[in-house]
Simulated scan of single mutants.
Amino acid sequence: MRVTLFVDIAPETQQSDDSGPGRAPRKSRLRRLAVRAGLPLLSVVAFLVAWELVALSGIWNETFVPHLSTVWRAFVDMSTTHDGVRGYQGYFWWEHLYMTLRRVFAGVLIGVAVGVALGLAMGTIGWVRRLLEPWLTFLRALPPLAYFFLLVIWLGIDEAPKITLLALAALPPAAVATTAAVRAAPVGLVEAARALGATPREAIRDVVVPSALPETFTGIRLSVGIAYSSVVAAELFNGIPGIGGVVKDASNYNNTPVVLVGIFAIGFSGLIIDALLRAIEHRAVPWRGKI
């Protein structure tokens, strides 16, 4: 009888015990998710409310601070065909954004690839670092507009100067971050690998590169951000279709609602790209912060 009672009651007791601890982590995860998603949403709502209050107060002219409804109408106009006009300048806003993202992707891909390769060489070979570091510092100190007009003179007004400008903007952060990360690789681990018979190339591949990856990803994120901030400069000439070209063209006519739509499109797409980069970083270097 005791055995039967034990058998009958034990599963129920265990089920109730399992359900209790299981619910607590689940509630905790839901609470963390709500806080993580709710705080950014709350900040956006607060910003929009503050903007509308300023617009309603009439402190500034509507040319400078338009109502949210006016910005929304501009967004709808850029998303539809109205009065025989397709979007803005013959393209919908997502077509402008697509062209900008394509330019950014090409420029960042070139700039990051060259920057990481240079950083790896500068971090491992002293004379290469001494040779190239002044040029990287010189390029990093230059604002994009300082050399964009020179690129236009050399390469014309088509895609070449835009992609080159974005590549030059993306190169220094990736190179500097990779150089610093490679030079900070644990000397003890490198010497241990060499003592176990690893060649210099194998030590770099198996020890230096993995230890440098976290900081390299930080440099890549900085490169993407700097390239993205150079989009409007890159699309000054012949920038339509392109969201930076839209911002520049609309600003010529004081079309603030369209400028704001372009700014929001650049900003939100930048947030999405950075989130994707962080997800890739989390997958590629799961040991970051754990060693």
Score class of each variant (00 low, 15 high):
Met1Tyr: 10
Arg2Gly: 12
Arg2Ser: 14
Thr4Arg: 14
Asp8Tyr: 10
Ala10Leu: 15
Pro11Asn: 09
Thr13Tyr: 11
Gln15Ser: 14
Gln15Gly: 15
Asp18Pro: 00
Ser19His: 12
Arg23Val: 09
Pro25His: 11
Pro25Ala: 14
Arg26Thr: 14
Arg26Gln: 13
Arg26Val: 13
Arg29Gly: 03
Arg32His: 10
Leu33Gln: 12
Gly38Trp: 00
Leu41Arg: 00
Ser43Gly: 05
Leu48Cys: 01
Leu48Arg: 00
Leu48Thr: 04
Val49Cys: 00
Glu52Tyr: 01
Glu52Gly: 00
Leu53Met: 05
Val54Met: 09
Val54Gln: 05
Ala55Asn: 08
Ala55Trp: 07
Leu56Gly: 00
Glu62Thr: 12
Thr63Tyr: 12
Phe64Thr: 14
Trp72Ile: 10
Thr80Met: 12
Asp83Glu: 15
Val85Arg: 13
Arg86Thr: 11
Gly87Val: 04
Gly90Lys: 03
Phe92Pro: 01
Leu101Tyr: 10
Arg102Phe: 08
Arg102Tyr: 09
Gly107Phe: 06
Val108Met: 01
Gly111Ala: 07
Val112Asp: 06
Val114Tyr: 08
Val114Trp: 04
Gly119Ile: 01
Gly119Val: 05
Leu120Tyr: 05
Met122His: 06
Thr124Gly: 00
Ile125Ala: 13
Gly126Val: 13
Trp127Asn: 07
Val128Phe: 14
Glu133Thr: 01
Glu133Tyr: 14
Pro134Ala: 08
Leu142Asp: 07
Leu145Lys: 00
Leu145Pro: 05
Ala146Ile: 05
Phe148His: 06
Leu150Asn: 11
Leu150Val: 15
Ile153Arg: 12
Ile157Leu: 13
Glu159Asp: 15
Lys162Gly: 05
Ile163Arg: 09
Leu166Asp: 04
Leu166Pro: 02
Ala169Phe: 02
Ala169His: 01
Pro173Gln: 01
Ala175Lys: 04
Ala175Ser: 09
Val176Thr: 11
Thr178Leu: 05
Thr178Ser: 08
Thr179Phe: 05
Val182Trp: 06
Arg183Pro: 01
Ala185Lys: 02
Val187Gly: 08
Leu189Thr: 08
Val190Ser: 11
Val190Pro: 01
Ala193Glu: 07
Arg194Thr: 15
Gly197Asp: 04
Pro200Thr: 04
Ala203Pro: 04
Ala203Glu: 03
Arg205Val: 06
Val207Cys: 02
Val207Arg: 07
Val209Glu: 00
Pro214Arg: 03
Glu215Leu: 13
Phe217Glu: 00
Arg221Ile: 00
Leu222Pro: 03
Ser229Leu: 14
Ser230Asp: 07
Val231Glu: 02
Val231Trp: 03
Ala234Ile: 02
Glu235Asn: 06
Leu236His: 09
Asn238Arg: 13
Gly239Asn: 06
Pro241Lys: 04
Pro241Trp: 12
Gly245Arg: 08
Val246Trp: 05
Ser251Asp: 10
Ser251Asn: 09
Asn254Cys: 09
Val258Thr: 15
Val259Pro: 02
Leu260Lys: 07
Leu260Phe: 12
Val261Trp: 00
Gly262Tyr: 07
Ile263Val: 15
Phe264Cys: 13
Gly267Ser: 12
Gly267Ala: 15
Phe268Ala: 13
Gly270Thr: 03
Leu271Val: 11
Ile273Pro: 01
Leu276Asn: 02
Ile280Glu: 05
Ile280Arg: 02
Glu281Lys: 06
Val285Thr: 10
Gly289Cys: 08
